[in-house]
Design a binder for these strands. Structure first.
Lengths: 339, 339
DNA sequence: CTGAAAGCGCTTACAG
DNA sequence: CTGAAAGCGCTTACAG
């Protein structure tokens, strides 16, 4: 069978290919009768426009790039799900680009990506979304981008956030309401702005409840399970031992649970544990983790949708939105008991 | 700044654009002197060929599609990692396409994908890689494809496998060598051919050791954590209670561990548990899971590399390879003790 | 409301 | 070994 192109359709419908193009792009200035004829031809010939030809004529690729560097597979999958849905709705393709923030020559890497894949736009996920040099680079190159981030900058870019600080505040408040006063905190990776936000929420909850902030209860993690194990060993050997631990993500919280088990501590009887992210592991371990669920898919979906809208219409003003997170209470947190 | 195209390079180097094209594609029949001149021009102008224009002229997109439908995020990520690496090595882009095997009109979905994204080829991961109708469809459409699969068909397609049956045999043998005779088995999702392969390996190990195969010890799962919980509740209430459980993947094995904890059974003292896949959860829970590690990234890498080679040279004969899996022993398995 | 021309940045024949 | 022409399947000006 021969190839069905815009020319076949034009011939079949008895119009010029420019007219076919108009119908294809939903342009005005086509009479209803003509439009009908062309649409009928589309159906009869089972015509599918060639996006490559379209791209060349338009100087567009209809491809959005998605940048990430995250140890959590479930987070990545959620980002992809949201981005993919938005792309499909608008007939765009999604190109995934995992890469290391700390890798050499990030900007070179991105520059090459932009050229070789001819991206029309790029969506930045944490920690890239908080990288000033990267954002400036894209701005200078005039590449449309949008950010899925934990902080809304006073930037003029498209950013979709979720209030990490407030969520951390809420979960700390929960621990306090259960009677805990010695609450350890495990920090995340310093490259992520969420790390600082979550710590701020923790501090604020303590302060509001009149509890002292103790530097000795703060431990450095980096979001990995392994770092959580190390932190847990240090924290659970403190005297007095904290009665609760709030880890900045669920992997580290799961590691705390493991170390607690090894130390024969019963959770939540001897120790309450809270995490962040609602990763699958939060419900795959026992006891399940009390944690924070963010609407990651939805955030990414909006970020990509707005990005494509801006690509189609560069005049569009920028868009910022903060979506709410949700506290999920499971079995890993319980009332304080003196030991 | 103006755009650098093949014309700019041709002018700069003082040759025709056809000659530039030859250098670009590493074709023969270019004098060394000319080649040098052109290469120098590439550098001086920082020329990057436009893949879209190339694609249109070639009737190629330089895009490979990756099809998957898998509940395990870590598996998906591993597949993507391998596929992405292979694509980048050969200057291809990767398009991810999660979709439901059981969804309505799979073939329509794929047909649309092929057209709207202009894929040059497609890599099938389980369970798609075992779908005869899908494979036949691609063959009829003459779309190059390759399979990452648990079974090598006597098919003429590119397939990269790993011997699931043998791995399941090995892990069952391990349990038997530890003294277990009542070993329950939780099956995976029926759509995956791995499900049957793993059961076969289990059976073979029993048989070889002179142990009877008991239908009552086999439970239906579907690879999800939830199904593992259900199976575990049934299995751990059997009389006599099995002293070991081999679950067809790690999520179900983790669920068995959870149910065992709830029933106050100590692992591995009262119950040994083995999984499959070496998912992150296998080392994130305590005790860690004895399991099987397959070289998923490597399998996918080879599958995509061979696919692209075949796209570039359709004369190439098909390629089949089986990679070995590896048994990983952790704390969840131990010697049999009578209760 | 409709169309003929030129062009997007490359490559495939075809000449020489 | 090198190049001028035509074309890939669309779209953007420009006319009418």
């Amino acid at each position: 069978m021969e190839k069905i192109t815009i020319n076949s359709v034009a011939k079949h419908a008895g119009v010029s290919k420019k007219t076919v193009s108009r119908v294809l792009n939903n342009e005005a200035n086509v009479s209803d009768a003509t439009r009908e004829k062309v649409l009928a031809a589309f159906k009869e010939l089972d015509y599918k426009p060639n996006p490559i030809a379209r791209g060349l004529a338009n100087n567009r690729s209809f491809i959005i790039g998605c940048l990430y560097d995250n140890p959590s597979k479930s987070y990545i999958t959620r980002v992809q799900t949201g981005a993919l849905a938005a792309c499909q709705e608008q007939q765009y393709n999604l190109l995934i680009h995992p890469c290391e923030l700390r890798g050499q020559a990030l900007l070179d890497n991105i520059d090459t990506l932009l050229h070789t894949s001819q991206l029309d736009g790029i969506v930045l996920t944490p920690p890239f979304s908080d990288q000033k040099p990267l954002v400036d680079f894209l701005k200078a190159k005039k590449i449309p981008y949008s950010r899925v981030a934990s902080v809304l900058l006073e930037d003029d870019s498209i950013s979709i956030g979720s209030n990490d600080g407030y969520a951390a505040y809420e979960i700390t408040k929960l621990l306090i309401s259960l009677g805990h006063t010695e609450i350890a905190f495990i920090k995340g990776h310093p490259d992520h702005s969420a790390t600082e936000q979550r710590l701020l929420g923790y501090k604020q909850a303590l302060e509001e409840s009149g509890l002292p902030f103790k530097e000795s209860l703060i431990d450095e993690g980096n979001f990995s399970y392994h770092s959580g194990e190390d932190s847990a060993r240090r924290i659970l050997n403190l005297t007095p031992r904290p009665s609760a631990v709030f880890a900045s993500n669920d992997y580290m919280a799961a590691a705390v649970l493991k170390v607690a088990s090894q130390l024969k501590l019963s959770v939540p009887h001897d120790l309450s544990i809270a995490g962040f992210d609602n990763a699958p592991i939060a419900r795959h371990i026992w006891p399940g983790l009390t944690t924070i669920a963010q609407p990651v898919e939805q955030m990414t979906h909006i970020a990509v949708t707005k990005l494509i809208e801006q690509i189609k219409n560069p005049e569009l003003e920028n868009y910022q939105e903060n979506l709410p997170a949700r506290l999920i209470t499971r079995e890993s947190t319980g009332p304080y008991r003196s030991s």
